[in-house]
């Protein structure tokens, strides 16, 4: 399934996480990702994973990039999301839509960890859409990841439709954490300043972007699944109740085997030659929710506490399920791919 160089990458990322992330995992969740870890991730080429070498990046293809995110998510989905945000939501759209003279020049800074990027997805918000662009970016956006980032890409309404613009930082009005990815700060930001238009095809750019994040997002979800199963399996072999190991009880063994079986098929499919992104996304997010719930259950009371490390999987699974469209949207698109454009309208 994985090619040799992908297996090598998996080893490298695993080693990186074992020596830099594992011991920090609780601190990441409580206080955010330490700068030293961000620097280390930059030095290892993770922050510029998708950027070409001439822009200071590692030039990974989608499969290798997925390997990176999956492994990292096992150790800290917050850190994996940070890498995802810099790459899939910032560098990738710039590479795809930006002209040489506008926007691309910031990519080397991002890849080296010298500055941070973020994406403001205002276009997808239902009623709260309040950003607009008329030569200047104006208005307020909520749920902005890394609200203090140096560069803000924003999908906004403009006079001539929707646009993707690159703006300077705005004024952060509120900072908060959400249910999961606790290592990442989110916030409310007000913008009023110069911004450069990257593309005027905002809506279709957004659609394309969402299509392209499906596989990396699924890889992070599979990282959650892998960790949940590994921990449940390990614990079930150690913990005893009624004089037997938990793994000796059929229901417990079946829970673990069931999730593991689904994981193997999905992982195989994700790294196959042409996986359908939406199919992988729907199934892996579903499995991440199921696996994390199962793992808490196998851990009993201990599973409910953060120091063990399975409850965060349950919270992170909820966020992964929500950051790029929701279940009904995904199922609608999946149905339309199968049945035609009029499917699932009602």
């Amino acid at each position: 399934m994985l090619k040799d160089e992908e297996k090598l990458l998996r080893r490298v990322v695993t080693e990186f996480c074992e020596s830099n992330v594992e011991k920090e995992r609780l601190r990441i969740e409580r206080d955010g990702i330490p700068d030293s870890l961000i620097r280390a991730a930059a030095e290892s080429g993770f922050l510029g994973a998708l950027a070409p070498p001439e822009l200071g990046g590692s030039g990974l293809d989608l499969r290798s990039y997925s390997v990176l995110l999956q492994v990292m998510s096992k150790y800290s989905t917050s850190l994996a999301y940070y890498v995802f945000l810099q790459n899939s939501l910032f560098i990738a759209p710039l590479l795809k839509f930006a002209r040489e003279d506008v926007g691309r020049s910031v990519i080397p800074e991002i890849a080296s960890g010298g500055s941070k990027g973020t994406l403001v997805q205002d276009i997808f918000r239902r009623s709260k859409n309040s950003l607009s662009y008329e030569g200047k970016l104006n208005g307020m956006a909520d749920m902005v990841p890394l609200p203090d980032a140096d560069h803000h890409l924003a999908l906004v309404r403009s006079r001539d439709g929707d646009a993707l613009v690159l703006s300077n930082p705005g004024n952060v009005l509120e900072r908060y954490r959400i249910i999961g990815l606790r290592g990442i700060e989110f916030g409310k930001v007000s913008y009023e300043g110069r911004a450069d238009v990257i593309t005027e095809r905002g809506s279709s750019a957004a659609e394309e972007l969402m299509g392209e994040v499906a596989i990396p997002l699924s890889a992070m979800a599979l990282g959650v699944v892998e960790r949940a199963v590994d921990m449940a399996a390990q614990y079930s072999k150690e913990r005893e109740a009624f004089g037997s190991k938990l793994s000796e009880f059929q229901p417990i063994a079946f829970y673990i085997a069931d999730v593991q079986a689904q994981f193997r098929v999905l992982e195989e499919y994700l790294y196959s030659d042409s996986p359908d992104p939406l199919t992988v996304k729907v199934l892996s997010l579903d499995l991440a929710r199921k696996a994390s719930r199962m793992s808490i259950q196998v851990h009993g009371g201990y599973g409910y506490f953060e120091d063990i490390g399975v409850e965060r999987l349950y919270r992170d699974a909820a966020v992964l399920s929500s950051i790029a469209g929701n279940y009904l949207d995904d199922m609608t698109k999946l149905s339309r791919g199968l049945l035609g454009d009029f499917a699932a309208k009602i």
Partner: peptide, 27 residues
Amino acid sequence: KIMGIVGEDGLRGRLEKLYRDAKITEI
């Protein structure tokens, strides 16, 4: 199910709290 549908709007506030609180009833 509901968290998966409500999406981003559910990640803060009462819904996410109920999602976290619910789990204990199985334990």
